[in-house]
């Protein structure tokens, strides 16, 4: 069979909604695109632990601390589900980690913004996880089986993340005037970066068509962004907070909210490494990786020694 035939069979499976599984034939570009996308997604989960981890020791109550700990632990779990999905495509875990640390691989730019006040923890759950869920719900139907399955697990857990965030925002927005001001400040800072999470406009997104044809994605960046705005604006209204966009208004004709221009210069500047916290995030990951090196080596050496003892119990006992 020629590779053209393989490609035709592959595309017809995609068109018929048959999932692609690890050992199935797939075009190299499909494999490469998925490894890039899944690993970036995994890196985002791991780096995403940092802005929230910043508040664990300062959570205002034991209840909030437990919730935040559980959430950050979930993000670690999500990163691991995704790394293991990328590995089913032949990627090597250590290579992926190196790509993050050397800056070769990107992660979601949203995590390069700082968490300045406690309400930011609410805003992250509500807006950042809300935006992530919009994207991830679509990805539960992505064409690659292991990625879709990881997404199903992740979406189940993200729902708790978003709800705890909104509940925290409610506590702040309905609290003292100072608390409400903190909530508003936090919405002001997170709103636009959350909209940027969906990526460039469709007209500026060169890979989108192929990703849609392969059903890696099923909705365009702009469609997802519009969905997010439409569901989130009424949630902000309920909180009595103002979305920081003077152009935001309901468009009766379209049945959607119109919203203002996104500052793409800021977006690209953060992507290129010049956001408020890019360096700090990678430094923290590098430190964790380097500080953990001896643990990884010691655990491996210990496992090998145990294995040897099992193989030669007599020799080991004599040596002892």
């Amino acid at each position: 069979m020629t590779s053209l035939n393989f490609e035709a069979i592959f595309q017809s499976k995609i068109d018929d909604e048959v999932k692609i599984e690890p050992k199935d034939w797939m075009p190299d570009a499909y494999r490469k695109t998925l490894i890039r996308q899944i690993s970036q997604h995994a890196h985002s989960e791991i780096v995403g632990m940092l802005p929230e981890g910043n508040w664990i020791t300062r959570a205002p109550s034991l209840r909030r601390k437990l919730i935040l700990l559980a959430k950050v632990q979930d993000e670690a779990g999500h990163g691991l589900y995704l790394y293991s999905a990328a590995e089913t495509l032949g990627a090597d875990r250590d290579d992926l980690v190196q790509q993050l640390l050397t800056g070769k691989a990107k992660y979601s730019s949203i995590f390069n913004y700082p968490t300045l006040n406690w309400a930011d923890i609410g805003a992250i759950g509500w807006l950042v996880d809300g935006a992530a869920i919009t994207n991830q719900v679509m990805l539960t139907r992505t064409s690659y089986g292991p990625y879709a399955r990881a997404m199903v697990r992740i979406c189940k857990e993200e729902s708790f993340h978003q709800r705890q965030g909104y509940e925290l925002m409610m506590a702040m927005a309905f609290g003292s005037p100072e608390q409400k001001a903190m909530a508003q400040d936090s919405l002001n800072r997170w709103w636009w970066p959350a909209l940027m999470m969906f990526g460039p406009h469709d007209s500026d997104s060169p890979h989108s068509d192929q990703a849609l044809k392969w059903k890696i994605k099923r909705k365009s960046n702009d469609e997802l962004r519009q969905n997010f705005v439409d569901v989130t604006v009424p949630q902000a209204e309920y909180l009595g907070l103002t979305v920081p966009d003077p152009d935001l208004r309901w468009n009766e004709e379209r049945g959607h909210y119109d919203f203002g221009k996104i500052n793409w210069d800021e977006f690209w500047s953060v992507v290129k490494g010049n956001g408020p916290c890019n360096r700090q995030r990678i430094q923290a990951r590098t430190k964790a990786y380097e500080d953990g090196a001896w643990v990884r080596e010691a655990a491996m050496a210990h496992a090998e020694k145990k294995e040897q003892r099992k193989m030669q119990p007599e020799a080991a006992s004599k040596a002892a």
């Binding site: 779990g77 589900y81 875990r93 655990a299």
Partner: peptide
């Protein structure tokens, strides 16, 4: 799914957490 671990015992513990 899958995960990395030095040995079977650690794999069980990590699987519990993950």
């Amino acid at each position: 799914g899958s995960l990395h671990a030095a040995d079977a015992e650690m794999a069980l513990e990590n699987a519990r957490d993950l």
